[in-house]
Design a binder for these strands. Structure first.
Lengths: 182, 182
DNA sequence: CCTTCTTGTCTAAGATCCTAAACACCATGA
DNA sequence: TCATGGTGTTTAGGATCTTAGACAAGAAGG
């Protein structure tokens, strides 16, 4: 093998902030297989590699075309952002391919009535954002606020938090968090 | 598998005019494996597919990127060339819409009956040209065309190709290829 | 009609991939 | 300190890929 499939897969998985188990769960394979592939202990079948890449998601063509030695890009068009969410809560990641990324910058879009879920979120790091369209209800700890265009937030992610679009219009937010949870 | 690896491999092999056994010999695998892959009876490992494609030759990236439904045009009428110059110095561009072009120019002249040889040529890169006098028979992959003055060609040099002057008059071509191999 | 060569397909057996489960390690929190 | 939950790694064994060889069909020539 002239191309290093293992290193390439590991690079992709880590830039997306996924553990072997999480990627395996999304792909419908076992975490052991991810480990073996990344160590080049096995050469995966095309169908297996396809399943793994579906969990990112990424096409086989993109996988084999990807140039890891290329200098990191400085500019990205809207189409270059990688979708990580779902139709209700769209999370589009900036510079997803960039290796060693220290910051996660997202272009979020909440459909009317959409929310991050029933459970409150809590994780390491800090996060902040600015609302650019619509209105969002943000709960942090015991505090609840409703933010509109131009308004912003900043809090420690350890505090239980939840986003909920209480308006009729879709709400867009540019947010950042560190360290990369995605 | 959303992409049809078997059909894709079979299409490539046949356009290169190779039997399963001949491709297997070049690739260092067995003919049975080629057969099974083409029927999608197995999903080859990446390393096996790499070996098979080395026999063509073709990279994994090219294999998965290749769009068989939208093969780039091989032949252009005189009207299909794009004028880039002026009345004094006319510069008419071939395949202007083709992405990722990188070319250098040649002035070829084929005597009556001359050809590039019995064997089909195949090498890396791309080549293109315009007939300016006489007539030339050009075979590219499975396609055969006879081009006269003002007509042009553009194809990937990996496709087996051959030039043959089938007229009584000498034939002149302005051609370009990349990288500057031949 | 026979050979003889080609083609692609099929099948047992060996090689490799893939899974399930356990392992060691580290961080966090009771 | 111990428990818990996270990480990546390893291994035995079942599943799949790959090989070696046989098979059938078709074409060319005697």
């Amino acid at each position: 093998m002239s191309i290093d499939v293992g290193a390439r897969l590991r690079g992709i998985r880590t830039t997306f902030g996924l553990s072997q188990r999480e990627l395996a769960r999304r792909a419908g394979v076992t975490n052991g297989l991810i480990s073996l592939i990344e160590q080049n202990r096995v050469s995966p079948s095309v169908s297996s590699l396809k399943k793994v890449l579906d969990g990112v998601p990424m096409s086989l063509a993109e996988f084999f075309t990807m140039d890891l030695s290329a200098t990191p890009r400085a500019f990205f068009s809207a189409d270059d952002l990688v979708e990580l969410g779902n139709p209700q809560v769209s999370l589009r990641l900036v510079a997803a391919q960039r290796p060693g990324r220290q910051l996660t910058l997202l272009h979020e879009r909440y459909a009317a009535g959409a929310a991050t879920g029933e459970e409150m979120l809590t994780h390491r790091g800090e996060e902040a954002g600015v609302v650019i369209r619509g209105r969002i209800e943000l709960t942090v700890g015991g505090a609840v606020g409703v933010l509109g265009p131009g308004e912003a937030y900043y809090f420690a992610s350890q505090l239980p938090h939840r986003f909920r679009n209480v308006g009729r219009e879709a709400c867009e937010i540019i947010s950042a968090c560190t360290p990369p949870t995605f």
